[in-house]
Nucleic acid binder design. Structure first.
Length: 872
RNA sequence: GCCGCGGUAGCUCAGUGGUAGAGCGCAUCCUUGGUAAGGCUGAGGUCCAGGGUUCGAAUCCCUGCCGUGGCACCA
C-alpha cells in the first residue's frame, strides 16, 4: 500500500457567467471523480496517526437503494469525513451481505441463476451508493457470496469444529414452512419467522449448532465494558441472555426401588418449605417413561404437543396438568411427600425441564394449584402482616418479607434464606448453587442452497468428517437448478457425491448451508485485509479493530450484534483476533418515515399520485387522476405495502445528492425516526443554494489587510465550537441548525458594500463554513472551497479550530427579574462581578420604576446570565 | 405484567434550574435580467395535567394521563 495520494488536477468551479444558481448535476459527479482520482479515501495503516474505524451495517443487495440506506450511510459518512479532517487514519469500507433467500426465491420464480441475479443487484446498488458521495475505500469491497470470502469462513468454521464449539445435535427446532428452513430462537418473533412472517412450527431435526452458551457468562459480563453502546441495546441483550442464579438439586423418589432421582432448578430456594408439588415438562424423559406404561399420561402428552404447534399458542395456552402418581421426598423433611405432575407450562429446554412449585409465591404455580386444588402454603410474610391472619388470594406474593412456616429458615430475609437453603442442600449432597441462562445454542444449519456450504462430509464408515483445509473452498456447483421447493444443493445430481477424506470410500457432502448471520459475524474483521490468505490478517486486524463506530438499525440489537460478539470471542480464543469485543461504539439510527395516503375504499396511494393543497393550517389531498379526496394518514416506516416510499434516485435527480443527505441528517436526532417530506427536502435544497450564493458573492480579489469585524469573528468561532461538539456527540441535526443560523448571520453582513473589517471576517467565516458543512454536503463544500481560493480539496483540509476566548461575547445582555418575572434587561461586561452588576441594575430607570414602593429583600446575580431581585 | 423512551409553535425538533428557540409551513409586503426563483417583515406557545422543592421550574422530585419500543409461562 502506498502512502500519500498523488496530487490531481482539481476541477475548476462552475463558470458564474452561465448561471449563478448552484447546479448539482454539474458539480456532484465532477467532485466524485476528483475524489476517486485522488484515491482520497484509501485506508492506510499509519502508526503515526490515531486510527478510526467507521462501519455501517452492510446492506443486503436488493438492487435498489432506499431512504433508510441513504440515512444510514450518510450518518456514517459524516463521522468518517469528520474524523479524517481531525487527523485520524480512517477505515470506512463497504460490502454486501449477499447470501440469503431473496436470491433463491427469485431463482425459483423466474428461473434465473441466484449468483448472477445477486451480482447484477450488487452492480446496480454499488452505482447508486457511489452516487451518494460516500468517503469509502472501495478497494476493500467484497460480497459474502464471493468464494474468496466464504471459503475463508469455512476455514475458521473447521477451527471451531475442532475446538468443539460447533457440534451436531438432534433437536426440536423452529421450522419456517414458507422459507422451508430452520430458524434460531432469535429469529422467531411473536411465533412468526422474522423474514417470512409465517407461523413457525416445531420439528425434530439433526442440526449444526454453535456453542454460544459457552460464552453466555462473558457475553453478559462484557456488556458492562460497552460504554459507548446505547443502554437500551445492552438491556435487550442482557434480557435475551437471561442469566439467573439459583439452586439445582435432586429430589429422591418415595418409591425405594427408584434410585435415579429428579433434578430441578429454582431461583427461589428460600421458598422450599412452601413446596406443593413437582412439575415436569411434557417432553421430559420421565414423562416419556411414564407414558410407556400409562395410556392416560400418553394421551395427555399428546394433547400438549398438539395444542402447542406454534410459539404463539404456547404463550396463550391455559395451564393443564396430569398427576403421574409418582411421589418425591422433600429434601428438608423425608417424611413429606410431594406429587409429580406433568404440566404444559414447563419448558424442557430451560433449566432441567422440571421444577418444584411454590404456589404462594409464584403466579404460574398458583394458577395451577388453584385449578387442581393443590395446597398453597405461604412462607414469606410481607412486612407488617400478622402471621396468623395472612393468606394468599388470587395473587401470589413475590415481594420482600420475612420467612416463616419454614423450619430452620424462619426469621430470615429472602436473600439470607436463599443462601442458607443452598448451603443446606450442598451439605446434604443433594445439589448445588447454579447459574442458568435463557440463551440457547445457536442453530446454524439452513436447508437452503444459496448460503455458505458447511465443509463436512458424511461417510457411512467414518461418520461426520471435516473436509481438510487444503480442499477448501467448497464452492457451489455452477449448474445448480432451481424451480422446486426445498434445497437445490441437496437435489443437485452430482455435487454432494464425494469421497471420504478419512477412508477414501464414497461419502456425501453436507448440503445444509450456514445461517447468513454467520456471514455477518466477522465481515468487519475481514475488511481490515480482504485479500489475506488466512481468514483474518492479524496485523491488520490489530491495527484497525475494534470498530470505533458501528452504525445500523435497532432491529439488529439482539440477532446480529449478539452473534458478532460471540464469533469475535470464539475467534479470539482460537488466536485469530486480539480484541474480545468487535464494536467499541454503537449507534442505532431511527427509521425514515413518510405520510401515508388512502383512498375512500382503503387502498394505499403513492405520494406521487396525489396533490396536496394547503388551506391555512389544514392540508387536503386529492387523487391527481380523478380528483377523488384522499385521506392523509400517520407517518409510518417507508414500505412497499403502504406505498409510502420515495425513491432516492428521483430525489437526487431533482435536488441533488447533497440536499438529500442534508435533509435526512437535519430533520431529527439520528437515533429517532426521521419524517421524509417534500417540503423538507425543498428547504434543504434552498439552503444549498443560499450557501452557494453567499460564497459566490464574496469578492475573489485578495482581501484588504487589517483587523476583522469582531462580532462576525466571534460568531464564526462560536460556530466552529458548536458544530464540532454537535458532530462529536451525534447531534447532527443541531449542528446543521447552527449552520442554518450562521447563514443568517452572513446574510446580515453581506459582501456587497461591506467594510474592510467585515470582508476580512467573512473570509475567515467562509473558510470555516466550507469545512464545517463538508461532512453533510461534501460536493457543495468542495465547490465553495474552490470559489474562495482554498488550497487543495476540502477532503484534504484540516478541520477548523476555534479560539475559546472568541466564543464568548465581550458584553453580556442580562435579563433582570423582579420576583421571578422578567422586567427588563441591562448590559454588563462579560465576567462582571455581582456588586458591579447590582450598581448597573440600580442605575436603570426602568427597573427603579418597577421597584417603587417595594423593599428589596435580596438580589441574586448569576454571573453573565441573569439578575433576580426579590422585593416585597 | 416487567423494563425503557417520548409529550415544547400548524409540522419536525433544539433547549434540561436563569430572557421560550430553529427549520419547514402560514400571513403581509417587495423584487420580476438569480425566475418551475429570491428577499423583507410578521403572526403563532397553559413547554401533557396536577402537586412539591426553589428567589426562580419546560428543566429537579412525586402522582396521573396519552403515545411508543423491547421483553414476557425462563421456575
Amino acid at each position: 500500500m502506498t502512502g500519500s495520494p498523488t496530487p490531481v488536477q482539481r476541477p475548476t468551479a462552475m463558470a458564474p457567467q452561465v448561471t449563478r444558481r448552484y447546479n448539482p448535476k454539474d458539480s456532484e459527479p465532477r467532485w466524485r471523480k476528483a475524489w476517486s482520482d485522488a484515491d482520497a479515501f484509501k485506508a492506510v495503516i499509519d502508526h503515526s496517526k490515531p486510527k478510526y474505524y467507521v462501519l455501517e451495517m452492510f446492506p443486503y443487495p436488493s438492487g435498489r437503494l432506499h431512504m433508510g440506506h441513504v440515512r444510514n450511510y450518510a450518518l456514517g459518512d459524516v463521522i468518517a469525513r469528520f474524523k479524517r479532517a481531525r487527523g485520524f487514519s480512517v477505515l470506512h469500507p463497504m460490502g454486501w451481505d449477499a447470501f440469503g433467500l431473496p436470491a433463491e426465491n427469485a431463482a425459483m420464480e423466474r428461473g434465473v441463476d441466484p449468483k448472477g441475479w445477486t451480482y447484477e443487484n450488487i452492480a446496480r446498488m454499488r452505482d447508486e451508493l457511489k452516487q451518494l458521495g460516500l468517503s469509502i475505500d472501495w478497494s476493500r469491497e467484497f460480497a459474502t457470496c464471493d468464494v474468496g470470502y466464504y471459503g475463508k469462513q469455512q476455514a475458521w468454521f473447521l477451527d471451531l469444529l475442532k475446538a468443539g464449539l460447533v457440534y451436531r445435535k438432534e433437536s426440536v427446532v423452529n421450522w419456517d414452512p414458507v422459507d422451508q428452513t430452520v430458524l434460531a430462537n432469535e429469529q422467531v418473533v411473536d411465533g412468526k419467522g422474522w423474514r417470512s412472517g409465517a407461523a413457525v412450527e416445531k420439528r425434530k431435526l439433526n442440526q449444526w449448532a454453535m456453542r454460544i452458551t459457552d460464552y453466555a457468562g462473558q457475553l453478559t459480563d462484557d456488556l458492562k465494558t460497552l460504554d459507548r453502546w446505547p443502554e437500551k441495546v445492552r438491556v435487550m441483550q442482557e434480557n435475551w441472555i437471561g442469566r439467573s442464579k439459583g439452586l439445582k438439586f435432586r429430589f429422591q423418589f418415595s418409591d425405594p426401588d427408584r434410585t435415579d432421582g429428579l433434578d430441578v432448578y429454582t431461583t427461589r430456594p428460600d421458598t422450599l418449605y412452601g413446596a406443593s408439588f413437582v412439575g415436569i415438562a411434557a417432553d421430559h424423559p420421565l414423562a416419556a417413561e411414564i407414558a410407556a406404561r400409562d395410556p392416560k399420561a400418553a394421551a395427555f402428552i399428546e394433547q400438549c404437543r398438539r395444542g402447542a404447534a406454534t410459539e404463539a399458542e404456547i404463550e396463550t395456552a391455559e395451564k393443564i396438568g396430569y398427576d403421574t402418581g409418582l411421589r418425591v421426598k422433600h429434601p428438608f423433611d423425608p417424611s413429606w411427600e410431594l406429587p409429580v405432575w406433568i404440566a404444559n407450562f414447563i419448558l424442557m429446554d430451560y433449566g432441567t425441564g422440571a421444577i418444584f412449585a411454590c404456589p404462594a409465591h409464584d403466579q404460574r404455580d398458583l394458577d395451577f394449584a388453584r385449578k387442581y386444588k393443590l395446597p398453597v402454603l405461604p412462607v414469606v410474610l410481607p412486612p407488617g402482616e400478622d402471621p396468623q391472619a395472612h393468606t394468599i388470594g388470587d395473587e401470589a406474593y413475590v415481594g420482600p418479607g420475612t420467612i416463616y412456616n419454614s423450619g430452620f429458615l424462619n426469621g430470615m430475609d429472602i436473600e439470607a434464606a436463599k443462601a442458607a437453603a443452598i448451603a443446606r442442600i450442598e451439605t446434604q449432597g443433594d445439589g448445588e448453587g447454579a447459574t442458568v441462562f435463557r440463551l440457547r445454542d445457536w442453530g446454524v444449519s439452513r436447508q437452503r442452497a444459496w448460503g455458505c456450504p458447511i465443509p463436512v462430509v458424511h461417510c457411512a464408515v467414518c461418520g461426520v468428517v471435516a473436509v481438510p483445509k487444503h480442499e477448501l473452498p467448497i464452492a457451489h456447483p455452477a449448474d445448480i437448478q432451481f424451480g422446486k421447493s426445498g434445497n437445490a444443493l441437496d437435489q443437485h445430481p452430482t455435487w454432494k457425491h464425494t469421497t471420504c477424506p478419512a477412508c477414501g470410500g464414497p461419502a456425501m457432502r453436507e448440503t445444509d448451508t450456514l445461517d447468513t448471520f454467520v456471514d455477518s459475524s466477522w465481515y468487519f474483521a475481514r475488511f481490515t485485509n480482504p485479500d489475506a490468505a488466512e481468514p483474518i490478517d492479524k496485523a491488520a486486524a490489530d491495527y484497525w479493530l475494534p470498530v470505533d463506530q458501528y452504525i445500523g438499525g435497532i432491529e439488529h440489537a439482539v440477532l446480529h450484534l449478539l452473534y458478532a460478539r460471540f464469533v469475535t470471542k470464539a475467534l479470539a480464543d482460537q488466536g485469530m483476533l486480539s480484541v474480545r469485543e468487535p464494536f467499541a461504539g454503537l449507534f442505532t439510527q431511527g427509521m425514515v418515515t413518510h405520510e401515508t395516503y388512502r383512498r375512500q375504499n382503503g387502498d394505499w396511494v403513492e405520494p406521487g399520485e396525489i396533490n396536496i393543497v394547503v388551506e391555512g393550517s389544514t392540508r387536503r389531498a386529492t387523487l391527481i387522476a380523478s380528483g377523488e379526496p384522499v385521506l392523509i394518514g400517520d407517518s409510518e416506516k417507508m414500505s412497499k405495502s403502504k406505498r409510502n416510499t420515495v425513491a432516492p434516485e428521483e430525489i437526487f435527480d431533482a435536488y441533488g445528492v447533497d440536499a438529500a443527505r442534508l435533509f435526512v441528517l437535519s430533520d431529527s436526532p439520528p437515533e429517532r425516526d426521521s419524517l421524509w417530506s417534500t417540503s423538507g427536502v425543498q428547504g434543504a435544497w434552498r439552503f444549498v443554494n443560499r450557501v452557494w450564493d453567499e460564497f459566490d458573492s464574496q469578492p475573489q480579489d485578495a482581501p484588504p489587510s487589517g483587523e476583522p469585524d469582531r462580532d462576525l469573528q466571534r460568531a464564526t468561532h462560536k460556530l466552529v465550537k458548536q458544530v464540532t461538539e454537535a458532530i462529536d456527540t451525534f447531534r447532527f441535526n443541531s449542528g446543521i441548525a447552527r449552520l442554518y443560523e450562521f447563514l443568517n448571520v452572513l446574510k446580515a453582513n453581506p459582501a456587497k458594500g461591506a467594510s474592510n473589517a467585515v470582508l476580512i471576517a467573512r473570509k475567515e467565516a467562509l473558510s470555516a463554513f466550507a469545512r464545517l458543512v463538508a461532512p453533510f454536503t461534501p460536493h457543495l463544500a468542495e465547490e465553495c472551497w474552490v470559489r474562495i481560493g482554498g488550497t487543495g480539496m476540502v477532503v484534504e483540509a484540516a478541520w477548523p479550530t476555534f479560539d475559546p476566548a472568541l466564543t464568548e461575547d465581550a458584553v453580556k445582555i442580562l435579563p433582570v427579574q423582579v420576583n421571578g418575572k422578567r422586567r427588563g434587561e441591562i448590559s454588563a461586561p462579560a465576567g462582571a462581578e455581582p456588586a458591579d452588576v447590582e450598581k448597573i441594575v440600580m442605575a436603570d430607570p426602568e427597573i427603579a420604576q418597577r421597584l417603587e414602593g417595594l423593599t428589596i429583600r435580596k438580589i441574586i446575580v448569576v454571573k453573565d446570565r441573569i439578575v433576580n431581585i426579590v422585593a416585597a
